[in-house]
């Protein structure tokens, strides 16, 4: 089962390595990991999507708490969060199918950020399922490159982590 965990950490050298090392050491696979500073520059927020059963996820959270630089952890309930990922997709095009692709891009409210003779670079922001749907539709044209930021997420409402 997939879980999203949000981890607030002290923004210090080596912290990310300690966190990612902990996952591999304890035998958990990370689906995605996104990290950046928060409203407080001394604090970073790491959003991790991980596959684990309930016992596993409890163990991960407890082990993470043991890292001295970890400040706070929350397992995010899918129903109660806004989850986003930014993805760049480079698709092969030619004069014939460009319009077709543009239509798909418009429907998904994605953006074209670069146009070349033989390719289009598309930027899409959304949930994983939305991104996945676009990817499937673009696949037949030939995806040359795809890169994603990894999920970030925030709880709804005024409550803070």
């Amino acid at each position: 089962m997939s879980h999203i965990i949000s981890v607030l950490v002290e923004n210090k050298a080596g912290v990310l390595a300690k966190i990612s090392g902990l996952f591999s050491r304890r035998g958990f696979n990370i689906d995605s990991l996104a990290v950046g500073t928060t409203e407080d520059k001394t604090v970073s927020r790491i959003t991790i999507a991980v596959q684990a059963d309930q016992r596993g996820i409890e163990q991960v959270v407890k082990q993470l708490y043991k890292l001295i630089n970890v400040l706070k952890i929350q397992e995010l309930e899918p129903a109660n969060i806004v989850e986003r990922e930014l993805v760049l997709i480079k698709v092969a095009t030619d004069a014939k199918n460009r319009a077709e692709i543009l239509e798909i891009v418009n429907i998904f409210r994605a953006n074209i950020v670069d146009v070349a003779k033989k390719s289009l670079l598309i930027e899409i922001t959304g949930t994983s399922s939305k991104v996945e749907a676009l990817r499937e539709l673009l696949d037949p044209y030939g995806i040359l490159e795809l890169t994603r930021t990894g999920k970030i997420a925030c709880t709804r409402g005024s409550k803070r982590l």
């Binding site: 390595a17 300690k18 902990l22 050491r25 043991k66 890292l67 001295i68």
Partner: peptide
Amino acid sequence: GITAPITKHNYL
């Protein structure tokens, strides 16, 4: 790096 998994904490 080497001792991260075998220490409670470490410093450089």
